[in-house]
Amino acid sequence: MAPLKFCANISWLFTEIPDFTQRIYAAVSAGFQAVEAAWLYDCDLQELQRAREATGVEVVLINTPPGDVKAGDLGLGAVPGREAEFRQGLDLALKYARALDCKRIHLMAGRVPVGSHRMAVAKEMEAIFVQNLNYAADMLSKEGITGLIEPINTRITDPRYFLDSPHQAAAILEKVGKPNIKLQMDVFHWQIMDGNLTHNIHKYFPIIGHVQIAQVPGRNEPDSAGELDYSYLLNTLKDHDYQGYIGCEYKPLGFTEEGLGWIREYCTHSK
Results as ranks from 00 to 15, higher is better:
9 N>F: 04
12 W>K: 13
14 F>Y: 10
16 E>N: 11
21 T>M: 02
30 A>E: 02
33 Q>H: 12
35 V>K: 09
43 C>Q: 15
44 D>L: 07
44 D>I: 01
45 L>E: 07
47 E>P: 00
49 Q>L: 10
50 R>F: 06
53 E>W: 02
58 E>C: 09
64 T>I: 02
65 P>F: 11
68 D>G: 00
74 L>E: 07
75 G>E: 01
80 P>L: 08
81 G>K: 07
84 A>F: 06
86 F>I: 04
87 R>I: 03
89 G>R: 06
95 K>G: 01
100 L>P: 04
101 D>A: 13
104 R>I: 01
104 R>H: 14
107 L>G: 04
110 G>Q: 09
110 G>T: 02
113 P>H: 14
116 S>P: 00
118 R>G: 04
120 A>S: 12
121 V>C: 14
130 V>W: 09
134 N>L: 12
140 L>H: 00
146 T>P: 01
147 G>H: 07
154 T>N: 15
158 D>M: 15
162 F>A: 03
166 P>G: 03
181 I>W: 00
182 K>V: 05
185 M>Q: 09
187 V>L: 15
189 H>F: 04
192 I>N: 05
193 M>A: 14
194 D>F: 06
195 G>C: 04
202 H>L: 14
202 H>D: 15
207 I>R: 08
208 I>H: 11
209 G>E: 07
215 Q>R: 01
215 Q>Y: 03
216 V>Y: 10
227 E>H: 08
229 D>E: 12
229 D>L: 11
234 L>E: 04
234 L>A: 04
234 L>S: 05
235 N>P: 03
236 T>M: 14
237 L>G: 01
239 D>L: 14
245 Y>A: 03
245 Y>R: 05
247 G>V: 07
251 K>M: 05
254 G>K: 14
255 F>D: 13
264 R>Y: 13
269 H>M: 15
